[in-house]
Structures are given as structure tokens and as C-alpha cells.
Design a protein around this nucleic acid. Structure first.
Lengths: 218, 218, 218, 218
DNA sequence: CATGAATGAGGTTTCATTCAT
DNA sequence: CATGAATGAAACCTCATTCAT
């Protein structure tokens, strides 16, 4: 009950940097192991602290995970919302910019770990799933829906079920983000994700627009 | 204490059916819990046998899982290969038939659990991933590639990187299969998967073909 | 994740005796350490099994504890209820018999550990406290109340608040049961509990009865 | 970063009050959680200092607890000893005054936490138990013994084993102090402790005295 | 063949105690 | 003097795997 004296090792002391270090370590471990399989112990070691220290900053594993989402994903959503809020752009370039924004997260080998693992383990962790769905999925979709609505209003995009279009638009990006850290690891030189996504965006927009847009040079 | 006498035939019958019962039980548990979270205990109970019995038929959890893949997924691949082997069909209807075949697995709420979980947990179980990649992914792609090659040869499909096309073709299907058992659970009446896939196939084929095909009636 | 082969040591196998062994071990550990401080590990070791085995029989620490109460205490209550159910006895001897019954539990160095620890830790484990209060305290009091009521009806006991009388009657017994396994350990040859209780019962009954009963020979 | 300047006098004042604040906080936490379950962290927070500061004033948890006993309980004992030292009073009123003194501690919801927890956890902390037994129990008993001796000498109290009488006298009071913060919490409007103790004192004195004392008006 | 009791490594979480600042 | 970040032992609990019966 009363622990023995601790050999006075060199303990680092940096309250300010800790959360960031912890978050980075957690992101990495969560991303490559998944939520359930990630061990707090490994996260701690990677961050250069002891197991107990993690609990000084986050109440438990789930809280840590939420914090990872908050710092890694939410800012990108905010950026997307800012983008869309600027009213002036043409629908098509705006849509392309939105795709670029999505891809900034979903295409980043590091960040894409988050959506991947949420999809992977949502079934076993309903609270996390609900949180992510509300904070990320819904907001992410709203961006698309808004731009699409404007495009339809201006007669640039053909009219269709927005939810369906959204899914068609995003599913390949989400697929890549899942694939990359799963079976993608089994193939040496597969399809280049960037090229894949570029191709998808072109095809998708061609299918979406009334007239025929120029294909972006590749 | 004194075991009730079981007629030898009944015993024999049980014995013959065991693997199938076990496999069915395992499929269900793996599909809804994932590989790591599925408990052998539950699988056994669901199959109506004791935990120890599982190990009589399968060396360990992993072997059981491989067997599940073998019986649940491989036959569908073989069916696809048979389809393609019949040389005579036009590329476009053949391609549509192939999509239907993919969807028979990926759209089935039960079966789709397998690809979903393989993608979800590949990172933590490299052997499983390698096995699945070789036995399922590669063969699945070969089907597409073959039909695509024929279409190009006949001038029906435009020429492009086959691997890229394959990914474009399949990613929405794979996405649905992941989404359904993850964040899809958070939304009440989302996009109907069948409609979504039908729409995708139409769009994809329109983008793939030189001329403009008829849109399938929806 | 997959444990290594276990050196085939001699594993005992006795499903039937296990619960009793476990309960005995648990009673002992709980009684001398208290609920919170008792380690499942020690209970297991004392019962001659490994840690995990405990959870095969009891869902968790609390369930084990409830089982201990059930097997160690409740039968004595039932015996008391049976005693009172036999309508015929005179109130005074019946009351003396009841005291004897209380004392059979509260005076037993082993069994008295239970009430002691429940009182000691009720504050930190409200569920346990509520369970014990309902299953033991209330029933134990009802016995007293019933006999007292009869005594008053027959004019043998003086009339007073039954709850108050009950507390006056029982508090010294409960005190002994607490004291014995706490500060009682600090005094070599203190007051003999049996004598103490006998004295209390005499004094209490003398105070309770209208006329003056004979003092029991000591 | 730059600590705000604190006037030296204010600092000094704090310093002087620290132990008392700490002790008060500790008393409260110990009383309602018990020794083992009380967290230094909470004590520190309640006292408005940091965890580390506690260790500046008390070597460890146990030392803090001893200090709590010293300041909360010992003065009352000293008061009792002063009372008894004044030789002149009649035994019966003196005994009643002693009971009142005991009850001042044991009936105080705050202070009674101490004896309660010592009894509750003595088994796990023998040093504390020994200390308490010597410093509190023995001295408390000596008070009773002295008054009793005088009463017997004057022929007011009947002759009996003083240790036994002491236990009979005190056990209901100690019982209340245990019960109150344990299973007493499970019952809404139980017996009023003050009334219970008054009743006990009357009954006890009646049993103790040769002649019949007046019952105190209730 | 089948059982299911038993195992024990390993995971998360708590908290008294230390010590650099 | 005071702080509070850091530590790590230890507790509870899960579950794949083994093996006597």
C-alpha cells in the first residue's frame, strides 16, 4: 500500500508540452493498433512517461481518444466550414476545394488513422461512434450538402438526392483511408491514392454537372 | 454421471454437422463483434457446444477464422470465376453481372461482416490479412481486370489503368460494407445501400464506356 | 494475446466442492481484512485455485461477497424465524433463545466478521449496505419485534418503543462483534464476551420485564 | 510563472494555520470515507493546499491520522480526567456527567467518525490500533473505573467486575457511533440516538445502583 | 469425441509518495 | 515553503488455451 522509495531518476517536467506529446503518441498508437488494441502502456512509453501519467491528463482511455479526435480532426472541419462560409466562389471550384479539404485529412497517413479506426470499432464502442457521428460525420456532410445546394440553385449541378450524392462523393475517399491501413499494407506498389482520388473527383464532378466540365490536367 | 446413451447414428450425424454449425456461429460472432472482440466462448455457446470442442475442430482462433473465410467467401469468388470463364457475353452486361456478384457478398448484412472485419483488423493480424489479400482480394480483382480487358479490346470501354478502374469500381461497395456495421448504425434512415450501389454502377459504367449506355431503370 | 503452453501441472478438478471452498476462503479473507482490503488473489490462493477461477464462480468481488453473506448469515436468520414461528413458548424463554441465536452468529469469531465488515464499510459500498440492511437487519429486527409484541400482549414485558428496545437489546452484541476484530485485538485478557453478553441479557430482561425475573445462574 | 508577491505576514499567518486546516480537512475526509479510502488528494484540496504540502507537515498518511486523533479526541479525554480529578461530586451525578462527556465525542456526527473508523480498520493498521488503544481506550476506561470504584466504596453502586461494567456502560454508545455512519444510513427515521443513549444510561444506572434512582425526566 | 474447470498473462485504473522547480 | 507532475506497485477483471475426465 505504501510504495517504497523511488530511485531518484531524472524526471522530466513539462506540463505544457505533455498533452501534445501524449496526444501525438496516442494518435500514433490508436491509428496503427486500433482503439481496443492500443495499450495505454505503449502510449505512455511512446510519450516518454509512465503509465500513471496518462491518467493525470485524461480521465480514461475513452477521454484520451476523444481528445485525439478533437485536436486532430475537428480543426479541419472548422477550416472546411470557414471555406464554405465565404459565399462568393463558383460551385465547381468550391466543390473541388472541399474535396481537397476532405483529402487533407483522409489522405494523410497519420490522420486517416482516426476515421479508419472509428469505422473499424464503432460497433463495439457506441459512445465513441455516436460522438464521432455527431461531431464529424454530420458536420462533414453539411459542408457537401451546402455546396451542392448552391450548385443546383445556380443550375450547375443536376438535381438528385443530396444524401446519395454525398455518399457517392465521399465513399472512395473513405475507402482509401480504410484500405491504406489495412489490406493496403499487403500490396507493394498499388494504385497511387492521390491519383485515385483525383480520378474519382473528376469522374464524380463530370457525372454531377449538367454540361461537361474541363478535365483537370493530371 | 452416467451419460445417457446416444444412438451411434445421432452422434455421427452431429459430428458431421459440427463444423458447419461452428462456422455459422463463428461467422455471426465475428461479423458483429470483430475478430479480436469475438469470444470463443460465445461462438461455442451459439453453436451449442462447449468451448473445448472448438479446439477439437480448429487449432485456434485464427484457424477458425480462416475456415470461416473459406466457406463463406471463397465459393462466391469461384462463382465469379465461372461467370467470367464463359466467354460469350458482351462486356457491359458481364460487368453488370460481376457487380451483382460482388454485391451478393458485400451487400449481405451477414457476409459483409467478413470483409469489414478484415479491413478493420488487418493491421493487428498480418497473417490473416496476407491470407485474405491473396485468396480474396487478388482473385476478386482479376475478375474485374479480365472483363475490363475484354471491353477495351472490343472498344467498348475506354482505355485506362485497370488497377485504378478496379478501385474506382469497387470502393463504394467496400465502403458500404464497412459503413453499414459501423457508423451506419448511428443514423436512422440513411441512404438505401441498394439504391446507392445501383446509382454508383450506372455512373461508373457511364464514365467507363466510350458511348453512352442506357441508364438502367430505377 | 495467445498465451504460451502451460506446463501440465496437476490441476485439481472438483466443481462440486469449489464454491464451498471459495466461500470459506472468502469469508476468512473478508472477515480479517475487510471488504475493500481483501484481495481476490489471496482468496484464490487460500482456496487453492488461481485468480481467474474465482470469476468462474462469481461474476465479481461484490457477487462473491453477497454469496458469502447468503451462505454464512441467512441460514441463521431462517433458523430464528423458524424458532419464532413455533407459537407456544413463553415470551421470556423465547427471548432468551433469540438472544442465543443472535449470539450464535455475532459471537462466532468467524461469522462475526461479516456484520463487522458490513458496518465498517457500508459507507463506501452503498449497494452492499442496502442489500445487507434489507436481507439481514430488517429480518433480524422483525424477530425481536414479534417476540416483544407477544410479551407485551401477555403483560410480561413493559410497554415501550419496540425499535428502541430492539436497539438496546442488540447494540451490546453488535458492539462485541465489532470490537472483537478491531481494538479487542489490542488487549490480552479483556472481558470475556460470553460473560459480557450473558450479563447484558440479564440486565436487559430485568429492565424489560414488569416483575423481577430470576437471574440466570452464572 | 512569476509568483505574485505575498506579504510576509500573510505567509506567516497561513503557515501557522496550516496544520489546523489540514487536520480539519483530514478529520472530515477520514470520518466519512474511512482511513484506507480517504485520499490525500481530497484532503489537500479540502484544506486548500497541494498534495505535496501535506507531506511537508506530516511524514505520511498514518502520521496525519495520528495527529487527527491527537487534536480531535485527546482534549476530550483530558477534560474527562479533569472532571474526575475534582474529588467532591456524588458518584451518580458524576457518572452521568461522564456519560455526557463520552457522548460529546461519540454522539458528535463529526467526531464520532474517528472511533468508528478506528474500529472499522484497526485490523489492517495495527500500529494505529495500538496507538489508539493506549491513548484513548485505556484512558477512557480508567475514568469509568475510578468513578465506579468510588461508588462502590460509598455503597452506592453494587459490586461487580469493573471491566465488565465499563463495557456494559459504553457498548451502546460505541454502537451508535458505528451504526450512524454505516447501516444507519439505510434507514430513514430510525431511533433517535440521543433518546436511545438517555434510555440506556437510565437503564444502566438503575441496574448498577443498589437502591432505585429517580429516572431522569425525558 | 466431448466437456468445461482451470489457468495466467495482460489490460485499465487508482493513489501514496517523491522531488525538481 | 509550496507546488503539482511524475511514478509504479497493485488491484480487479477478461479470455484464449489446455487437459483430466
Amino acid at each position: 500500500m505504501e510504495p517504497v522509495a523511488i530511485p531518484a531518476t531524472a524526471r522530466r517536467r513539462r506540463k505544457a508540452e505533455r498533452p501534445a506529446e501524449l496526444l501525438a503518441a496516442a494518435l500514433e498508437e490508436f491509428a496503427c493498433r486500433g482503439y481496443a488494441a492500443a495499450r495505454l502502456d505503449d502510449i505512455a512509453r511512446r510519450a516518454g512517461v509512465s503509465k500513471g501519467t496518462v491518467f493525470l491528463y485524461y480521465r480514461n482511455k475513452q477521454a484520451l481518444f476523444r481528445a485525439v479526435i478533437e485536436t486532430a480532426v475537428l480543426p479541419h472541419l472548422a477550416a472546411g466550414e470557414a471555406l464554405v462560409a465565404k459565399d462568393d466562389a463558383e460551385p465547381e471550384p468550391l466543390m473541388r476545394a472541399l474535396f481537397a479539404g476532405y483529402w487533407r485529412v483522409l489522405g494523410d497517413p497519420q490522420l486517416s488513422g482516426i476515421p479508419k479506426l472509428v469505422m473499424a470499432e464503432a460497433g463495439n464502442f457506441p459512445e465513441i461512434a455516436a460522438y464521432y457521428h455527431e461531431q464529424v460525420v454530420m458536420r462533414g456532410r453539411a459542408l457537401f450538402a451546402e455546396i451542392y445546394r448552391r450548385g443546383v440553385a445556380r443550375g450547375v449541378f443536376r438535381e438528385a438526392d443530396p444524401a446519395l450524392m454525398c455518399q457517392l462523393a465521399l465513399s472512395p475517399l473513405l475507402f482509401v483511408c480504410v484500405w491504406r491501413s489495412s489490406l493496403g499494407g499487403c500490396e507493394a506498389g498499388g494504385v497511387d491514392p492521390d491519383r485515385f482520388v483525383a480520378e474519382h473527383v473528376d469522374m464524380f464532378l463530370r457525372g454531377l454537372m449538367q454540361g461537361t466540365p474541363e478535365r483537370s490536367s493530371s
